[in-house]
Design a protein around this nucleic acid. Structure first.
Lengths: 144, 144
DNA sequence: TATTAGATTGTAATCTTTATAATTAGTCTA
DNA sequence: TAGACTAATTATAAAGATTACAATCTAATA
């Protein structure tokens, strides 16, 4: 369940000395309850009715903390603002060029690419990122 | 040679009704002469001595045109500004998390990922993008 | 060469993100 | 449980990247 993910995240943050505030908890809760790839602004707007005094900076600060702790992944796509994704199992992203919709899909992890890239470039490889772009079913049928 | 790439680009743009201005030509020239993955601002600063009156908007406008025509690829990495890459042969990018350096490397095109992703999501696939992140040799030896 | 639509310029505006200082509030310990 | 310590939040300003827009200019075409 989402609750487990949330509890795990809270525990792991606590263990590394990160304090748990109501705002921070709410952002984590938002990310673990079906809201995938939101922007910072979307999170802010979703929570401002519960925290009328919350600052946008708080959202950004927390997202940075979560990213540094490996709890969320930050992604820059074509559009202006970053999107944030709660890290669960390894997955890749399919992105619609028509409407911007993002859908996760699973695929065997491309370890080989990392090995080859390390060999060719001399870099010490840390991670990789793969995105597929195309047109979602809705946008395909909306062509007129 | 770079000249061929440049000539091809100019021809293909002309054929699709894009006018060739000195500024536009200079931007293309810059992109085809060994300057890989520059930001819009880097292009602007590199050319402003030749075109003292050139506007930043011109650089952005042209990069958008080139992107729409498939002549350059736009990439958003962790840093603030987009980077632009002249499209030649298919290659992927290795990015240093220490200093931001970007190195191209070749790898068999991941057609299979596109096929699988299309099947799993119902999208019509257009293209994909892969980046590997790590630490470049320089940054590895600069750890102290 | 005259025409015309597209391109450029200059500037303002927008949008996202970060910086900063003051205030507030978790967490730890006595 | 109170007090202290320090991190987190808030509010606001600032920075930086990109876009919008109106006026001017110019490449392409006949």
């Amino acid at each position: 369940m989402a609750n487990e993910m949330l509890d795990d995240a809270v525990r792991s943050l606590r263990e590394s000395g990160v304090r748990m505030t109501p705002q921070r908890h709410a952002i984590l809760e938002y990310l673990t309850t079906g809201h995938t790839h939101p922007t910072a602004d979307e999170i802010y707007r979703a929570l401002e009715h519960r925290f009328p005094n919350m600052s946008v900076a708080t959202v950004y600060n927390n997202l940075r903390v979560f990213r540094e702790k490996g709890i969320v992944e930050e992604m820059n796509y074509g559009d202006a603002s970053s999107r944030f994704d709660f890290v669960t199992t390894r997955h890749y992203h399919m992105i619609c060029e028509g409407c911007g919709k993002i859908v996760d899909f699973n695929y065997p992890v491309l370890d080989d690419v990392e090995t080859v890239a390390a060999h060719l470039t001399g870099f010490k490889v840390d991670r990789h990122r793969l995105e597929v772009y195309g047109t979602c079913p809705d946008c395909q049928s909306n062509v007129h």
